[in-house]
Design a protein around this nucleic acid. Structure first.
Lengths: 230, 230
DNA sequence: CCTCACCCATTGGTGACACCATTGTGACGT
DNA sequence: ACGTCACAATGGTGTCACCAATGGGTGAGG
């Protein structure tokens, strides 16, 4: 897979704004810049076209499209934008999406999760409380548990569209701690809410799970929304 | 653009289940079947790979991946699955996603929409009521208005991720009437709810907009959830 | 029966080529 | 001076023939 370098570089360059909408590229240009043949440049370009980042036509070359034509829900586009400038804005959009999706996903999981998943959820929440109360709320282990809990919920929702967001949510959560936005001692309410979700799902109480998850996401949103009012 | 036929055909075949997970293809096979060169077969295959439908490697050919590896949020995948068997299940998943996203989007739109959009929303809702009470709830014009209202809301939410779902929601809505699931005389509650959303957004009342939109989507879900209990 | 090395089918990547749509330019006429 | 039309340059689209790399099946050997 030799496109990776080309695709990655171009994708990041476009989503990062280094190549603004309306900028044009040529296959030969790409080929010579990356020291790669026309064919692989073409394939990378096709992928970019599939992501809605560019449009190509004879005589005009490869034109960068405005951001409202992008497939902003594609994991690759999300990752690129999360890595470039505008990371904060992207994080807010994603958190808003989480706010919409995760409560309902939790409610669905309360109806559809297997017994094994229910057990794992409460065990995870319990472990999170232990670590949090030990002042390790900003550590890798706490992060891994946090991700695991949310991923378990989304994947057990019985809705493949929610499951598809699990990776994205994982990236968002890890982004928050790696950006140093997590306190060593998490808010007790956050710990309570995580445990409440797990327990509600375990006993099949969809409404309670939904409400507790809504509390979690609201807290997350408040934590990173400070100062960046749109 | 010669990949379109190949990409479309293969995509539909895979998402439709005609090519089950584990099935293998070869570039030469694709080329001869569609009367196309290896290069374009390769590019079509790259696109499919980008959608998570297949994986390709030397000596192994192109293998179809299980459905949990698919980019189920990609508009093309959604369209293909909506056209094939499993349309009903896909429709339920999408409606669940709408249930999660649209209420929050309406709430955001109440804060962010322009004056022009607010006016257009109430005009659209009013026109829907007229048509609905005239017994044209299953017609093309009513459908167009319904789509317009939801699209305006999503696009005015100020969240690009919600905006990206506008096309999908449009397809879902149109799918419902084209499948003959819309009554000529819509439920009065549905008409009321649409108007309530428009008015709430117009006066900037996010909570009311959210609540009214939740009513709409709940009604939709009930309408197509009958009989297909999972 | 298990292990391991080898073979070869099939993708990955390259370069050269013909084709054609689009666009910009310039000539021509009014 | 301005509009129209035709032509040529540009750069993507599709094809072909070729070589390199890889990895799974196969068969020999323990």
């Amino acid at each position: 897979m030799l496109h990776s370098p080309v695709l990655e570089a171009l994708g990041r360059r476009i989503t990062g704004g280094a190549l603004p909408a309306g900028a044009t590229l040529t296959l030969d240009g790409i080929g010579t810049e990356f020291g790669v043949s026309r064919t692989v440049a073409r394939e990378a370009m096709r992928l970019l076209e599939g992501l809605g980042l560019v449009r190509s036509g004879p005589r005009v070359g490869i034109v960068v499209l405005p951001h409202d034509a992008w497939n902003v829900l594609d994991p690759r586009v999300i990752e690129w934008r999360l890595a470039g400038p505008g990371r904060a804005s992207q994080l807010r959009s994603l958190t808003e999406l989480r706010q919409a999706v995760e409560p309902l996903a939790a409610s669905c999981a309360a109806r559809g999760a297997t017994a094994a998943v229910r057990d794992e959820l409460v065990a995870t929440a319990r472990r999170m409380r232990e670590l949090g109360e030990a002042g390790k709320g900003d550590g890798e282990e706490f992060l891994a548990l946090d991700i695991q809990l949310h991923e378990l919920l989304l994947r057990s929702s019985g809705n493949e569209l929610f499951s598809a967001l699990a990776d994205v949510v994982a990236v968002v959560i890890s982004g928050r701690t790696h950006l140093g936005l997590m306190p060593a001692y998490p808010e007790p309410e956050a710990l309570d809410a995580h445990e409440a979700v797990a327990l509600a799902v375990a006993r099949g109480d969809g409404a309670a799970a939904e409400e507790a998850m809504a509390r979690i996401v609201r807290e997350v949103r408040g934590a990173l929304g400070e100062g960046t009012r749109s």
